[in-house]
């Protein structure tokens, strides 16, 4: 059980939670993730760290409300608890942070120590891109960042990014309501074809990663992507997260989540991501009905299966 120490609504449906968890905060690295469960009957869902404080013992993550688990999370407030939180999981983005395993795949091909690199974050993917960019800055690389979103409201971490010693920061919105109008691929293409960068790290929805990686690769710049398949355990035990990398089956949770973009089978990844779409809708819809029913919390119509709802009140967890 971990206490939420801060909750911020970054925009409609985009939420940042800061959770007290000193063990994980002491260890997590850019690019790694954790699994959480909100309730006793909840799914195990992965989230990537967007920030942490080793001194104060907290970790932070950002999510968009899309299904039942994220709805449940969005209903929590500072002072509430998250049932289970396990991490850090996955391999750090920077090889230098992963000292024990012989590396393959995510070695930022073509990038020399102190070289020039571009980090691209699409939508909530910027939450993952930010700590990677920060780590690269700390390691002495020249870092360009491109962040994009549909509209100004959905842009996240702009301030934090501005505070980094970046070589450049490009902000893109589809509708031009902030930064420049257009997709992240426009500035990426410029950076890549002018040879100002020797590697691209791309994080975002699969479709965005596919196109952005295509842009970089077309310009002859190797790219790394952070894959986000469905996961269950996140520890390498089930294979739900498997992805085809150069035709070989790899597990994103233990072999990744970062992989060389040129090796990824995008169609397969996207197809697998959608495999439970109907169930997810059903689950989310049932939850939304349930939220309405919660008005009846104090009458008898509230059945046993709804008891967990009361658990959200601080300290009221049935363990």
């Amino acid at each position: 059980m971990n206490e939420i120490i801060e909750k911020r609504m970054l925009s409609e449906g985009v939420i940042q939670l800061t959770v007290y968890e000193p063990r994980i905060a002491a260890k997590c690295q850019a690019g790694q993730f954790f699994m959480l469960r909100v309730t006793d009957r909840g799914e195990r869902v992965p989230f990537t760290f967007s920030d942490w404080s080793r001194e104060e013992g907290w970790i932070r993550f950002i999510f968009m409300v899309v299904g039942k688990t994220t709805s449940l999370l969005s209903e929590l407030a500072a002072g509430d608890y998250i049932k289970d939180l396990a991490g850090p999981l996955g391999r750090p983005s920077l090889r230098s942070h992963d000292t024990r395993r012989p590396s393959w795949g995510n070695d930022f091909e073509g990038l020399q120590q102190g070289g020039s690199v571009v980090v691209v974050g699409g939508g909530v993917g910027t939450a993952v891109a930010f700590p990677v960019a920060r780590a690269l800055c700390e390691e002495g690389y020249q870092v360009h960042v491109i962040t994009g979103a549909r509209t100004a409201e959905l842009l996240i971490l702009e301030e934090e990014l501005r505070a980094l010693p970046l070589a450049s920061l490009s902000i893109m919105t589809d509708d031009g309501s902030a930064g420049s109008k257009g997709l992240v691929t426009a500035p990426l293409k410029e950076l890549c074809s002018s040879r100002s960068v020797s590697h691209a790290i791309i994080v975002g929805p699969a479709i965005m990663m596919k196109f952005a990686a295509g842009t970089a690769l077309d310009a002859g710049v190797p790219a790394t992507v952070s894959l986000n398949p469905l996961m269950i355990d996140g520890t390498g035990m089930c294979g739900a997260c498997r992805v085809s990398i150069d035709g070989a089956t790899k597990f994103a949770c233990v072999d990744g989540p970062d992989f060389s973009a040129a090796s990824v089978d995008w169609a397969e990844l996207m197809s697998r991501q959608r495999s439970y779409i109907d169930d997810e809708r059903e689950s989310h819809a049932a939850h939304q009905r349930h939220v309405q029913e919660r008005e009846h919390e104090n009458c008898d119509c509230f059945d046993e299966s709804s008891l967990w709802a009361r658990g959200f009140k601080k300290g009221g967890w049935a363990t």
């Binding site: 009957r41 799914e43 688990t69 269950i232 035990m237 169930d279 689950s283 049932a286």
Partner: peptide, 18 residues
């Protein structure tokens, strides 16, 4: 088996994992 045993998918949607 994990979906069914550990995550109780046979009780979906009462449990969240399908």
């Amino acid at each position: 088996l994990t979906r069914v045993n550990l995550m109780h998918a046979y009780e979906f949607p009462r449990w969240d994992t399908p």
